[in-house]
Simulated scan of single mutants.
Amino acid sequence: MKPLPLVGLAAFLLLMGTVGPRAAGCDPVGNIRFVCDQSGPEDLVVVPGSDWVLSSGMTTSGAIHLVNAKDRTSTILFPSASAKERLDKKTYNTCPGPIDPAEKDKFRAHGLYLRPGRGSVHTVYLVHHGNRESIEVFEFDGHAKPPVLTWVGCAVAPDPIGLNSVVGLPDGGFITTNFSPRNQDAAGRGRMMQGENNGELWEWHTDSGWQKVPGSESAGPNGLEISKDGKTLYIGGWGSQSVIRLSRGQTPVKRDSVQVGFRVDNVRWGPDNMLLAAGQGGTAPSQTSNVAKVDPNTLKAQEVVRQPYGDALTAGTVAIQIGKDIWVGSVRGDRIAIFPAK
């Protein structure tokens, strides 16, 4: 999420909540447990075939964290001394080079996506904010002890695209959301929050570069998922408070949606082939972090988490399921909240 004019920022903070109050230490609050030592874990991805989870970081000195799902310990995976660089010049032929280490506190790790590879080696896509607005691409090596990220390339977004979420494609390309164009004024953001289209999806490939995805115009297109066959996209409609299903590679484009009653941030596949949509509901002072399970075939939605802002969680943004638990990340605060799955 991008810098806003003061009026727009004030309205946005009222909705998202200020930096949430913290539970004492990392102690449970009722039946809610935590993974602490995070930096605004806006997005979460499960590393397949392992006990690892990756979390992003949207606060000052944001970072990609590596979380052990068993003991809930966390370490910084990037930027770190263990991270490596190996530019794939063939695929990312317009990338100017690695992330500028001088970014320091400006570095923000926003949306994450992991595309499974062979064995324990996968491709990780990161929505990056800092000295450039870009999709950064990494190789995740789970064979290493501990795992290592190797930066392999990037694609810098053209103005005024304001990136939010991303899904990877087999050729190294990706699809990403333009949630809120950079330098959008407060009035434009207010219209988006009322359901007016202000953004869209973009697809990038080595040969064709950045291309707008047909039929993807939406009010605050935020989170993004893709079907296994690559023929369907699922969009978190933040402004429209809906999950949108959009065909890919089909003419005419087929599009439908379901209202979920809260501002959908990220969308993630669950282990039961259902979608988990997470976001923010209500208005101050009765705001909530929400998670709904959405059937990708029928688009029927069922609420699984509704948590008032407070010690346990403020401004929930993403949900993943690990075993019998629902992990919920937040754009604010220092922890991931763990709820019993219903």
Rank of each mutant, 00 (worst) to 15 (best):
Q280P: 03
N290F: 06
D334E: 15
P296V: 05
R268A: 11
A69W: 13
A155V: 04
A284H: 14
L4D: 02
I76E: 14
W151H: 01
F107P: 04
E200C: 05
T177S: 15
T251G: 05
A277K: 11
T298A: 10
A278P: 12
T314I: 04
L9V: 00
G195T: 08
L66S: 10
P146C: 11
Q250S: 11
G117R: 09
G188H: 08
G220Q: 01
G130Y: 04
G168N: 02
H205T: 15
G261Y: 09
G20V: 13
R118M: 08
G25C: 08
K2N: 14
V45Y: 00
S227Q: 09
A187T: 12
R245Q: 15
R335Y: 01
V148M: 04
L163V: 06
A155F: 04
V291W: 07
G153T: 00
G30N: 10
I320A: 07
R306N: 12
L313C: 00
P160D: 09
G117H: 10
Q184F: 05
A292H: 03
S286M: 11
A341I: 10
R263Q: 15
Y113R: 05
I32M: 06
G190F: 12
N131S: 14
G329R: 03
G173E: 00
V67D: 06
V213S: 06
G168I: 01
G97D: 02
H205I: 00
D171I: 03
H129T: 02
E136R: 01
E303I: 11
K212H: 09
P252M: 10
I326M: 07
G237F: 04
Y113P: 00
V47T: 08
G57C: 03
L9H: 13
Q38K: 03
S74H: 09
A186C: 01
H65Q: 14
V67H: 01
L299D: 13
G117I: 09
L6N: 14
A63R: 15
S208H: 10
I32N: 08
G279A: 09
R22Y: 13
L14G: 13
C36F: 09
A83H: 04
I226S: 00
W238T: 11
C36V: 08
T314C: 01
N178M: 05
S180N: 14
G209H: 08
P181L: 07
E42W: 02
Y113F: 15
I32Q: 08
G310M: 01
A83R: 01
L126S: 02
V19P: 14
Q280N: 12
K254R: 13
N297I: 08
V213L: 09
T60E: 13
G162H: 10
L87N: 01
C154I: 01
V53P: 07
R86W: 00
G220F: 01
G168Y: 00
P3F: 07
W202H: 08
L114H: 06
K300R: 15
P146W: 10
L169P: 04
P41C: 06
G117T: 11
I226E: 02
V294P: 02
M274L: 09
